[in-house]
């Protein structure tokens, strides 16, 4: 396959997933500018390795590369984001149940939801993004972030629990 054919084939298969790539990169880097750099970088890497891609699941394959690119960057730029600090102040056990019917997250809470999600450590943020925004199956998530299938459910459970706590704390602070 010539470089030109390869590029054409690549663009057809991989370029449609640009939004997914950007969304993940944006959530992992937490800013627009770096997210764009990450996407560009990831596409170049994907193109290099395109011969090794056998057409099964282009979106998951691309997001694996986007994720690795972002983690390399996070590693170099914000080592602190890789750790999972335990937020004592929000880990209160008193009444922080979401009242699903009464609250049902109004649209005005969107900004708050975004901020809460951004506050999660990267390893929790990414499973929620992959599951609830990309609607990936557990199997796809396991493949992308390279953990055993059995771990996906428990990581999602921890991530959502943590998100809920942060969100509840923020909702309570709200005047």
């Amino acid at each position: 396959m010539g470089e030109k054919d390869k590029l054409e084939h690549f663009e057809q298969a991989i370029l449609p997933h640009l939004d997914a790539a950007y969304n993940l990169a944006r959530w992992l880097t937490r800013n627009e500018h770096d997210a764009q750099d990450m996407v560009q970088e990831a596409y170049l890497r994907a193109f290099k390795f395109f011969d090794g891609f056998h057409g099964a699941d282009a979106r998951a394959w691309l997001l694996t590369i986007v994720r690795n690119t972002c983690y390399t960057w996070l590693d170099q730029n914000r080592a602190r984001d890789m750790t999972t600090p335990f937020d004592e102040e929000i880990h209160t056990t008193e009444d922080n149940a979401l009242n699903p019917s009464a609250m049902a997250l109004k649209s005005s809470d969107m900004e708050m939801l975004k901020q809460s999600l951004e506050q999660l450590p990267a390893e929790f943020r990414e499973v929620i993004v992959l599951r609830d925004l990309e609607e990936f199956s557990y199997k796809q998530i396991a493949d992308v972030i390279d953990i055993p299938l059995g771990t996906v459910m428990s990581r999602l459970a921890r991530a959502r629990e943590r998100l809920k706590r942060i969100l509840c704390a923020r909702l309570k602070e709200k005047p």
């Binding site: 950007y22 969304n23 609250m103 939801l113 609830d132 925004l133």
Partner: peptide, 16 residues
């Protein structure tokens, strides 16, 4: 409620 909130609240960033 949490999941539906995430899905419904436009926290998906589309590429510029």
């Amino acid at each position: 409620a949490l999941r539906d909130g995430i899905r419904a609240h436009g926290v998906y960033f589309t590429a510029p």
